[in-house]
Design a protein around this nucleic acid. Structure first.
Length: 421
RNA sequence: GCGGCUAUGGUGAAGUUGGUCAACACACUGGAUUGUGGCUCCAGCACUCGUGGGUUCGAGUCCCACUAGUCGCCCCA
């Protein structure tokens, strides 16, 4: 019987893990400079946490891994925000934390989608949530954080697209206008858009099929329905981005998939021609009602999430390589009957601070030296049956191939001396 | 959920209109060299071509289904 990973899942093998460690280090380093703190929430939650009733798209219905042991219903987390807000409310952190409360998370998420490159069923997301302060400057700072990470990963060709959905009043007014506008054109729209009309009319603006139809071109523009307050808020976001030298493109068709966004929404995409259908690196926005929805006070939040598989893919295309290696300082080999001495020697070397490995099975000298080479060992310790009778071993330096015979007790000291030259 | 393409050893792959031993390279293991390596040389390494059926005297090569990957659509919290 042979097995393979479940569809849409994959193994990160040892040769690949260095890149992940490096990426995670960069992410934590950048994020902690902004003074965000990590929060770890469960990989599954009550289904209700993710199945928000105001959530109109079919992702909630079709794309969640839901399981129902006994009479309970749980769902593997498809995203990070819901769990963080749930935790924020559950532990009443709005009462104990300095606001804005700044969280980041990093870990696996699960969505039952058709796999493609950069889109797995178990994938890894990093994200931040800034809760409790509603300020255009927070929005701009959040975007800046994401940009910093992308830059540190060595990714150069990116494009920031930004838009505002305005506050509740603006959104509602626009929604009404859209419904009124498209009502007489329903038959001209593609089947998807007919569906969107009822579920989430804003997304009709995104449609690729109907993109060029007059009904779409003549559609009312969101910017015409923004009230003064919303307009001013957005103006300040853009001004703050300008002030930090972050380039962006205002795209008034950018609406994102979820209903809960208010005011600022944004998306950062790769502009590489080879990034295919999965060009979005990170995306997010402001949400005014989520904290309240999960049982907390009326508080606004702002956040984004990055798909790490995509981030890593893109970074590699721009030359990202991990520094991490698996090289040995010392490799211990043996000849003849040396009993457990090799193990004792290598243990001592490790405890003395070296990265060390020993050959623990009888093999030819040649094979053992080969292993030493593969480990990129700087020194090879050769334990011979004869020398061992006098308490001595040989140490050979790989660089100049010189060899010394030393007493076992002097091994560490000898190598340390040698290192200095 | 829908459509296109793909699937040969540890890896990269060659395999003509279906018809001998499934190339070649790298990697790996051992030996040449009973205790000193990275070179060289030699030897070994796919009863089998994603899985299961079918067509045929005969299939890695044709057909069907399934599985997986990939690209696009949908969706993208």
């Amino acid at each position: 019987m042979s097995y393979q990973t479940a569809r849409g899942t994959y193994d990160i093998l040892p040769d690949e893990i260095g890149a992940w460690h490096e990426m995670e280090d960069i992410i934590r380093d950048v994020t902690e400079k902004y003074r965000y703190r990590e929060i770890r929430t469960p990989y599954f939650e009550d289904t209700a946490v993710f199945a928000r009733e105001n959530d109109s798209s079919d992702m909630v219905n079709k794309e969640m891994y839901t399981f129902t042991p006994g009479s309970d219903s749980y769902t593997l987390r498809p995203e990070g925000t819901a769990g963080v807000i749930r935790a924020f409310d559950q532990h009443k952190l709005y009462g104990s934390m300095e606001l804005p409360a700044k969280f980041y998370y990093i870990g696996p998420m699960f969505r039952h989608e058709r796999p493609q490159k950069g889109r797995q069923r178990q994938f890894t997301q990093f994200g931040v949530e800034t809760i409790g302060v509603k300020s255009p400057l927070v929005d701009a700072e959040t975007i800046a954080l994401g940009i910093d990470i992308v830059k540190r990963m060595g990714i150069s060709s990116v494009k920031v697209q930004i838009n505002t959905l305005g506050d509740d009043a603006s959104r509602a007014a626009y929604r009404e206008a859209l419904l009124a506008h498209f009502a007489p054109h329903l038959e001209e729209l593609c089947p998807d858009c007919s569906r969107r009309y009822h579920q989430n009319p804003l997304r009709i603006l995104d449609c690729k099929v109907d993109h060029d139809k007059p009904a779409l071109k003549e559609a009312p523009r969101l910017s015409d329905y923004l009230n003064e307050e919303s307009r001013e808020y957005f103006r300040q976001v853009l001004e703050a981005l300008d002030g930090m030298g972050i380039e962006y493109e205002v795209d008034d068709r950018l609406v994102r998939g979820l209903d809960y966004y208010t005011h600022t929404v944004f998306e950062v995409q790769s502009t590489r021609p080879d990034s295919g259908a999965q060009a979005t690196i990170f995306a997010g926005g402001r949400y005014d009602h989520l904290v309240e929805y999960f049982g907390g006070p009326e508080m606004s939040g702002m956040g984004f999430a990055i798909g790490l598989e995509r981030l890593l893919d893109l970074a590699k295309k721009d030359g990202f390589t991990p520094k991490e290696t698996n090289n040995a300082d010392i490799y211990v080999i043996s000849l003849g009957n040396t009993g457990s001495t090799p193990l004792q020697v290598v243990q001592q070397l490790r405890h003395d601070g070296f990265v060390a490995e020993a050959n623990l099975t009888p093999r030819s000298l040649k094979a053992q030296f080969k292993s030493s080479d593969r480990a990129n060992a700087k020194y090879t310790v050769i334990i011979g049956e004869e020398e061992l009778k006098n308490g001595a071993v040989n140490v050979k330096c790989a660089a100049d191939k010189t060899q010394k015979t030393v007493r076992l007790e002097e091994l560490t000291e000898t190598i340390r001396e040698w290192e200095k030259n």
